[in-house]
């Protein structure tokens, strides 16, 4: 502290508390709404204190789903989201670990071309080339499958860059020693490089898990079969009902369930997550 000004200290806390209130308020209102029956919500202003329908609303949702949205059980949507997020996160990490290894530890023709091709993917977000990408996936017969949900999203320039940056900081002596002891490149990779990358792998895992969980447009397009619905896109089908008011208590319960796992991951692995985020983007 540079100087002691009680007024400033109070001001800081007031501003921060206001910030926290803004951040938490929508989530709180959603949770509260999910614990009330439908008529309470439609009869006036949405309440600010939880009601008594917590168990009923959630158990109905998890097992039976919502009739308007095709009745897909939300439990199944959660499962699909988990599968998708885990496959994308592990896939991205596996693919990036080895491609960064090839780029950093080998000298071969076309090395820089490969590097630039990977870099190009940064410039092409799914939303931008959505129609042709969809056509490719449809032609390959990958609609309505976990493969179609995950493989097109598995190439990651971000993760490749993070691992590349990390490998560059690994002392040369390690590779030299390994080579002198007669270890081949793959032996070096699995016995030395991967164990050294543990923290980075964990950090990138958190970020990619969030990325996978929060996918929206892609699952919406490549899955028409309701058994592949993920929870984030499931909400869309619940809100956009044509002829009546959405069943807000169930929509808000779904929203709560959709944001709970990623929020939990971020809070539990906060340190790793912050490290991963700040370092990837450097």
């Amino acid at each position: 502290m540079v100087e002691n000004r009680p007024f400033l200290t109070v001001l800081r806390h007031v501003v921060l508390l206001a910030g926290v209130a803004i951040v938490l308020f929508p989530v709180w209102v959603a949770f509260v709404a999910s614990t009330h029956p439908q008529p309470t919500l439609l009869s006036g202003v949405a309440p600010l204190w939880p009601g008594d329908r917590l168990v009923e609303n959630y158990s109905q949702l998890l097992s039976a789903g919502m009739a308007q949205a095709g009745g897909t059980p939300v439990g199944l949507m959660l499962f699909n989201s988990f599968v998708m997020a885990l496959l994308i996160a592990t896939g991205k990490i596996a693919v990036s670990l080895i491609s960064a290894f090839a780029i950093v530890y080998f000298r071969f023709p076309f090395r820089m071309i490969a590097f630039w091709i990977i870099f190009l993917t940064l410039m092409l977000p799914v939303e931008v080339r959505i129609l042709p990408t969809f056509e490719v996936v449809a032609d390959l017969g990958m609609l309505n499958s976990y493969a179609g949900l995950t493989i097109p999203l598995i190439a990651s320039a971000t993760a490749t860059f993070l691992f590349r940056q990390f490998y560059l900081t690994v002392p040369d002596q390690l590779a030299e020693a390994a080579r002198m002891d007669g270890a081949g490149p793959m032996r070096f990779f699995f016995d030395i490089l991967v164990p050294l990358s543990r923290t980075n792998i964990a950090a990138i895992f958190v970020i990619m898990f969030l990325f996978g969980w929060n996918q929206y447009l892609w699952p919406l397009l490549v899955t028409t079969d309701e058994s592949f619905t993920t929870i984030v896109m499931g909400i869309y089908r619940m809100v956009n009902v044509s002829d009546e008011q959405p069943q807000w208590h169930l929509v808000m319960a779904t929203a709560t369930l959709a944001l709970l796992p990623p929020v939990a991951v971020v809070l539990v692995m906060q340190r790793l997550f912050v490290k991963g985020l700040v370092e990837t983007e450097k």
Partner: peptide
């Protein structure tokens, strides 16, 4: 900890929360 929470929320979900409010 509290301020980094929205990062984990999918934009679509964030939209629906404010849409409701």
């Amino acid at each position: 900890t509290l301020l980094i929470m929205p990062y984990a929320v999918a934009p679509a979900v964030a939209g629906v929360l404010w849409w409701f409010l």
